[in-house]
Every structure is written in structure tokens, then in C-alpha cells.
């Protein structure tokens, strides 16, 4: 198979830039409106031109954010609500490692927690997205949650659909939502212990046996001239 680079011409580049500046302005305007409505609740924000807008808010204002989005900012459509655990992951550093790094060992040497767009100070961050179905523009909201008190005000008073999402977040991360009376197991059987999406939740099957796909790994034909594939993965 012949692989060629995509045919980029200067004209399309220029067109793309023009589009980007236009949408950028839209997001700047939306951010200005959000800041105006929410005031001090906005901690930090990030815009990737032509793509998306991230706004980090305080945990205390979490419920007001939903209310303002739906009733004052026109962001009526509820996309999703979830969370991120920013604890460094024991997975994916090395293609050679057929068994995962020991999560406990990783915890022993404290690696710095690096958060994503719009910053963050804590291990757990709430993540939610709302959308404007008329203007076709969306915002991703984030909020820091301190480790000692993993709870946030509920969104269910504004967005009815948030109930299941909050149940899922509670189940997967152990984050509770004040005001959501129905925080019961959604996916897992009632006797399940642990919060699977936390980074320190181990997948026990992987500890017991290595990745079974290892039997299929053979040197690619002609791999020698392009450099050793295994070394490329280990950095």
C-alpha cells in the first residue's frame, strides 16, 4: 500500500484559518457571556480556536452553572456529566511491558498530577458538557473536587437527564452529589466493591496473566530498515 500525505494546498490552509478566526470570535463571545453571568465562579478557561471551549468553575457554583447554562446562556442541551481522575496512570508507557506497572508501586513514588485544559488543582475533576442546539456551540465545564470531600451539588434540578450520569459518576469514581436522592448502583451488582474508573482500581485479570495478544506479535516484514518497532514504543 502506498501511503502519501494528505493533499494540503496553501489555499485550503488559508480558508481554514479564516474559518478558525470566525469561530474563535464566537467562542470568545460565549466565554465573555459566561464570565458575565457567573462572575467569580469562573476560575480559568481555555479556548482551542475552531474547536472547543473549556471553563473551570468553583465547586460551590456547580449547580448555578447548570441553571445559568440552561436558563440564561441558551445552552439547553445536556450532553454528559462525568469526572476525571488525574492520578498518573500505570498503563501505556511501554509497549514491551506486557504486564502493567504495579499500581501500588506507582503510588509509592508520588508522580506529579498534571491536569489538562483550563488547569486544575485536585486529583478529581468533574467534567460536564452542555450544548446550544440553535447556535451549535458547546462548552465543557470542569470543577475541582478536594480529596477529603468528594461531593458536588447536583445538576438534576436543571437537567433531568443528569440523574443517571450522576449515578454513574458516583459508582465509577465515588463522587457523591448532594441533592440527588437516588444514588444507587446503576451498572454494577449491588455487592460490587470499589470504583472502577479510579486509576488505582486494578484490573485483576491483567495481573494474573499477560496480554494474550502477545502470541500474535511477530516482526513486521521489512521492519529492520525502519528501526526496531519495540524500541519505538519504549520512551
Amino acid at each position: 500500500m502506498i501511503r502519501l500525505s494528505s493533499a494540503d494546498t496553501p489555499t485550503t490552509d488559508a480558508a481554514d484559518e479564516a474559518v478558525e478566526t470566525v469561530t474563535d470570535e464566537r467562542r470568545e463571545a460565549l466565554l465573555a457571556r459566561i464570565t458575565e453571568v457567573l462572575g467569580d465562579a469562573v476560575v480559568q478557561s481555555h479556548i482551542r480556536p475552531g474547536d472547543d471551549l473549556w471553563v473551570r468553575v468553583t465547586r460551590e457554583a456547580w449547580a448555578d452553572v447548570a441553571d445559568a447554562s440552561r436558563n440564561r446562556l441558551g445552552l439547553r442541551f445536556f450532553d454528559f456529566l462525568s469526572a476525571i481522575d488525574w492520578l498518573p496512570s500505570p498503563f501505556g508507557r511501554d509497549m514491551d511491558a506486557q504486564e502493567d506497572l504495579d499500581a501500588d508501586a506507582a503510588a509509592a513514588e508520588p508522580a506529579p498530577i498534571v491536569t489538562g485544559y483550563a488547569g486544575g488543582d485536585t486529583r478529581f475533576q468533574l467534567l460536564a458538557r452542555v450544548f446550544d442546539v440553535d447556535e451549535h456551540i458547546g462548552v465543557t465545564f470542569k470543577a475541582d473536587l478536594p480529596d477529603e470531600d468528594l461531593s458536588a451539588p447536583t445538576w438534576t434540578r436543571t437537567f433531568l437527564g443528569a440523574e443517571w450520569h450522576e449515578r454513574e459518576t458516583w459508582e465509577m469514581f465515588g463522587i457523591s452529589f448532594t441533592g440527588n436522592a437516588n444514588l444507587a448502583h446503576l451498572y454494577l451488582p449491588g455487592a460490587f466493591e470499589g470504583n472502577p474508573l479510579r486509576k488505582d482500581f486494578p484490573l485483576l485479570a491483567r495481573r494474573v496473566k499477560p496480554w494474550p495478544g502477545i502470541v500474535d506479535v511477530e516482526p513486521m516484514p521489512g521492519a529492520g530498515d525502519e528501526g526496531d518497532s519495540d524500541e519505538g514504543g519504549a520512551s
Partner: peptide, 9 residues
């Protein structure tokens, strides 16, 4: 799903 936490193997 051989390594999933919720699937019976």
C-alpha cells in the same frame, strides 16, 4: 473483555 472487571470469563 478478557480483562474487564464486570464480565464473566
Amino acid at each position: 473483555y478478557w480483562d474487564s472487571y464486570s464480565v464473566t470469563k
